[in-house]
Amino acid sequence: MYRIVRKKRLNPTVTMMDIEAPAVAKKAQAGQFIILRVNEEGERIPLTVAGFDREEGTVKIIFQVVGATTMLLDRKEEGEYITDFVGPLGVPTHTEGLKKVCVVGGGVGCAIALPVAQKLSAQGCEVHAIVGFREKDLVILKEEFEACSSKLTLMTDDGSCGRKGLVTEPLKEALEAGEDYDCIIAIGPLVMMKFVVATAKPFGTKIVVSMNPVMIDGTGMCGGCRLTVGGVTKFACVDGPDFDGYLVDFDEAISRSAQYREMETAAREKTCNLFKKEGAN
């Protein structure tokens, strides 16, 4: 059992938790992920590591309430326990030798982009951050990004906070202005990453994306997380989750990500109704 040491709601649908898992905290690095189960009957879900405190022995996770499992997790309070927490899994983000990087984060993907930006900043790399959200109420981690980047561009779809528009716009402007990034690291919804790649392509800047497909074991056994990268089948859990953005077949990944959507929607509604019933009693 793994204790929830801290819980904080970052916005109406995004929650942060510090989970007591000393063995995972000892090894975790930016870009890696964990798999958790909330209870004995629950699903295994992968979540990318959003931070860690090796001394305290805790791992930070930030998740958006999208399905039945994240809904159950969100109902857990500080001091309560979750059944399983395993990791760190996957290959850490390569940051060696990078001198100037543009980190692009979208929505809850910013939670994953942050430790990468922090690690880069700590090793003396110049970090430009572009973060995008739908609207003002959904903005998370603004101060944290400010602290680890020399230039932060905040975008919202409706312009209710920061600049109005998509993350690809300031990225394009920066590249056109001749910013010579060693690498662009993009983490967010598949569609966002697809268009960040398309934006960068004419400039040929190296681009790394973090993929988060459906997984079960997370150790290379089930093959559910497979992607086509450069025409070859890769497993996000052992080969990734980071991949060369130019080589990822995003359309296929987008299609595959919808495999269980109908069932997930049904499960979410069922859980939601259950909670409503509990609330009524």
């Binding site: 009957e41 699903e43 295994r44 079960i216 074991d217 290379g220 056994m221 089930c222 093959g223 559910g224 497979r226 992607l227 086509t228 089948t233 497993f235 052992v238 077949d249 296929e252 299609s255 595959r256 919808a258 495999q259």
Partner: peptide, 30 residues
């Protein structure tokens, strides 16, 4: 270890599984 695929077109379509995934969902994940 890792499940093998044939390397034929269409293996990434929705509804294609490795036996490992199919059985793990059914057995381990009940």
């Amino acid at each position: 270890g890792l499940p093998r695929f044939m390397g034929i077109p269409g293996e990434q379509l929705k509804g294609v599984f490795s036996a490992n995934e199919y059985l793990t969902r059914t057995n381990l994940m009940k």
